[in-house]
């Protein structure tokens, strides 16, 4: 596997949800993702950033195979993604550790699905617990761990099956600032050691810039790719150090602008809408289109 090859291809993906009928006007389909296309290169650290409701988590579910697109295609190594498999590891914000399993048994979960023999399972679990600095905690239960430690277990669990891709859905959002930064650094170290392809969803611009090779900036209502921003910051990085560099600030500002522009644009459309004659308001599409107007 060489760096730079396309690992994941997302092509013209639309995802529509039917909202449950609560009010009278309900029951209309809600467009979570519209015409989303991007590529994740092998070995790349890609972050997806956007406001809540921009469909970034939905995007991750689609890559995981936990959901299917309404239209469009997703490929992993050139093969269409149809269902979840152990070639993709998933890490969630809420840790999602099995409370009745010890740390070790949690890490072994995927290996058990893979029917790896007991002894081997134990060795692999031990190895990944060492990777996330949790040696000596194998026999603890999740309730005995802090939030940061729980997330380390979740990362070890996702990595234990040796997936090629790691999908992370706001994994550090529930942690305090200090723990979060420690884990960001550790994730970068693990990424560099294991050479995984990582797709990392976050709503924090700082986090997105500090970790990424490239950032997919998404906007909401409907969820679309606004722009893909390159992050040519040097590696290996330490999050605290990188945040103090002018380049970081510049990219951070650029992403902020893109997200801000979305808000601005929405306002402008609103103003334009307000200036249109009454009848056009009912059919804004027609009024704006010269063909329909003619």
């Amino acid at each position: 596997m060489t760096v730079g090859e396309a690992k994941i291809i997302v092509k013209d993906v639309n995802r529509r949800y039917r909202i449950k009928q609560r009010s009278k006007e309900g029951g209309e389909p809600f467009l979570a993702l519209q015409d989303v296309s991007f590529t994740v290169n092998a070995g790349e650290f890609l972050t997806i950033v956007g406001p809540s409701g921009c469909g970034k988590s939905t995007m991750l579910d689609l890559i995981a195979g936990l959901a299917v697109p309404t239209s469009g295609k997703l490929y992993l190594d050139g093969r269409p993604i149809e269902k979840p498999a152990l070639d993709r590891g998933f890490v969630m914000q809420g840790y999602a550790l099995f409370p009745w399993r010890t740390v070790r048994a949690n890490v072994e979960f995927g290996l058990q699905i893979k029917k790896v023999p007991r002894k081997e399972r134990r060795e692999i679990a031990e190895r990944y617990l060492r990777l996330v600095n949790l040696t000596g905690f194998a026999d603890r239960y999740p309730y005995e761990l802090s939030g940061g430690m729980k997330q380390r277990v979740a990362i070890a669990r996702a990595l234990a099956c040796d997936p090629e891709v790691l999908l992370m859905d706001e994994p550090f959002a529930a942690l305090d600032a200090q723990t979060r930064e420690t884990l960001q650094d550790e994730l970068l170290r693990i990424w560099e050691e294991t050479k995984k392809t990582i797709v990392f969803v976050t709503h924090s611009i700082d986090e997105a810039v500090a970790l990424a090779d490239r950032i997919v900036v998404m906007t909401s209502g409907p969820g679309r790719v606004r722009e893909i921003v390159e992050v040519p910051l040097p590696r290996p990085r330490r999050v605290a150090n990188i945040k103090a560099t002018p380049d970081f600030m510049r990219i951070r500002y650029r992403v902020w602008e893109l997200l801000q522009g979305e808000v601005q644009e929405a306002r402008e459309v609103g103003r334009l809408h307000a200036e249109l004659p009454e009848e056009a308001k009912e059919r804004p599409g027609e009024a704006l289109s010269p063909i329909a107007a003619g």
Partner: peptide
């Protein structure tokens, strides 16, 4: 917890 089901499903259980 639905996230537990999601975690297990993501591993192709």
């Amino acid at each position: 917890d639905l996230s537990l089901i999601k975690a297990a499903r993501s591993m192709g259980i």
